[in-house]
Design a protein around this nucleic acid. Structure first.
Lengths: 212, 212, 212, 212
DNA sequence: GATGAATGAGTATTCATTCAT
DNA sequence: TATGAATGAATACTCATTCAT
């Protein structure tokens, strides 16, 4: 039986917002484990073993597996989508921003996988659904605002609903996750990025006159 | 002990290849049950009970639960996507065809749900993944050909990769399923349809002049 | 790992009413185990091991632990209280019948213990309570009738409510179970029996006149 | 993190022997909680939360859950049975005293419930049994003396064993607790009281003449 | 082909108690 | 004395699959 690692209490050196290191490590590990093994197939006990903890310790930090999933999704969403390393929204045109994003789509494979897991879990479990709805809705609300701002700043076609575009783009991202789960081969990042740029770029003026 | 409902022998109206009506009824019921209850949460025993059969009977027709899922997906894919009631591909422009399709997107909720279930199952189980990969790949191959044909027939922008567009459209559809699973509210069908029409419609000529 | 004993299917030689021998053996064993080990402390898995079965096999016969308890109580109630070996009700005076019964009270230790377990379980679990209420109520209804008949046949004091006497006698029996659980030493059977005979015997005429 | 309610220091009004008010409050709360929720189902942690304490604090006062149960039983026994508000023993005839007591039986529902919990716990746990045996035995010893005194003072039938009567009466009380746990409906207090008066009242002279 | 009892491994969650701080 | 995070073992129940009949 392996020695248990008795984790130190929150030290003052811990970064603010991640007050409890055990909790943070747990979320991190859960996010990874749910992607690797699947939410349904990952047992809490095995997760505990991975971290050299006991199940009881986990349940001391989280009310249940569902909350762990919720936090894992929140973490990955924030890390992989918000914490951008590339060009920021206000500084780039929407089409270029999105193109850039899709050029990096392979970086977000884990996020998409996690969201597929989350979706399947949510379909079956009311608690999970409620939890995840909130997490995802929050982010979407922020993006919706950004899209509306872009519409104004870039003088995009007022006849097109920014929210519909947002949903389509976001759904496309999520759908890539479904296709990846099915092992369907996807276009190369550059090809995808160019296509996105072309499609979204077409919104930058009113509807084309020359349509027969 | 309830009387078992013994299904009638193969009728002459059954299409060839679906010789056994029990098998067909099973697939039909499984497709419904997996959507309603979730693939993981639906037990083979309960599925058998729904059809007044026994578990053994199911295993007489299918090697396992995974094969049932595979067949269920195949069924719904053929019924909900191929067996179109609306305008056919070759007779309509691609943009209009897709717009029409998204105007009806709510009809395909069950299909999307089933594919979310399938994706999550595939992530975890190699057999399921292989099975579903084949089923979905087959359909995609057909669509790819249709897109390529449309590119030629409609003289669409040769700098845009038809397959990339196909993947984006298909992923968007699947992603709607993920969002639905999370209870995220979606745009109205007409708004979505118009947006798709606008986006895909923008491909109908060469690259816009003002692009360097 | 011990060989599993694959029990034969219901044979035609099985006594009617105990159609399934596995089920009957299970109830028997459960009744014993719940007394020995306590309802709460007896795990379904251990019970299964005792019988060289798996937990799954048990759950094939009973919806849950609570039902097993219900059946165990029913069994012991029928065996230890109804299936009398001593004098039958209609043939003996009530007082003598009860005196005889208490003379044998030690025979029913297991029944009382089971009912104490049942009571504690019922206090906490609604299903258990409903189940046991029905089982016990049924028996009590029979006894109530017998007491009423005795009142007429033996011309007992009409000012005394037969049901109240029944409840007191039945409660006394059950209370012995509580005292036994606490290891309280009880009077010798003959002493108890005589006291009961004296008390119940006093009901055989109208209220005594000579009371000051 | 919620503020802990730090209980006031021992006040001078506290009776000696209950020096620590935390301890007393704990016993009080435990008695209530074990009745409400059941001994087995009530977790130490939840009990601590109810009192705005921590589990550790409880274990500072009691060696374990079992001791808490023991003290709870002692408390309720003293409060609900000894601390009589009605007529006192020596001043009333035994039959009348008991009749009065049963007329109030509904007041003691919590006591009976606690004793049913205690009995079930005692059956399973040697420590609990030993603990409770002592608590209950002590009280019974007192009652035994009172019954013997009554036998002399009221010139009751010397052929009847006072202890046997005590046990029957006490068992009847406890048995009511078992029946209550099973949700069995009980006679009205007055009916029960009259019956008790009649039965015990019958002991007030030597054996009846017509007995051989 | 069908039956359904049995398997056996697995699941999330709980809890009394301990102990370093 | 109090704290509360951690322990570690336990619990009821489920399920895809098999196989003797």
């Amino acid at each position: 039986m392996p020695r248990r690692l008795r984790l130190p209490p929150p030290s003052s050196t811990a970064s603010p917002g991640e007050a409890h290191p055990t909790r943070a490590a747990l979320i991190e590990a859960a996010a990874e484990a749910f992607v690797e093994t699947g939410y349904g197939a990952m047992s809490v006990r095995d997760l505990a073993h991975r971290l050299h903890m006991t199940t009881g310790a986990i349940y001391g930090h989280f009310r249940g597996k569902a909350n762990l999933l919720g936090e894992a999704v929140r973490l990955r969403l924030d890390r992989d989508l918000e914490g951008e390393d590339g060009p920021k929204y206000p500084e780039t045109k929407l089409a270029e921003y999105l193109a850039h994003n899709f050029r990096d789509y392979r970086k977000r494979r884990a996020l998409r996988a996690l969201l597929v897991e989350a979706a399947a879990a949510a379909r079956v479990d009311d608690d999970v659904r409620a939890l995840l709805h909130d997490v995802v809705s929050e982010r979407q609300a922020g993006w919706r605002k950004q899209y509306r701002d872009a519409w104004i700043a870039e003088d995009l076609d007022p006849e097109v609903d920014p929210t519909a575009v947002l949903v389509i783009v976001w759904a496309a991202e999520l759908g890539l996750g479904v296709l990846e789960a099915l092992d369907i081969s996807l276009p190369k990042p550059t090809v995808l990025a160019n296509t996105v740029q072309r499609l979204i770029g077409s919104l930058d003026r009113g509807p084309r006159r020359h349509r027969r």
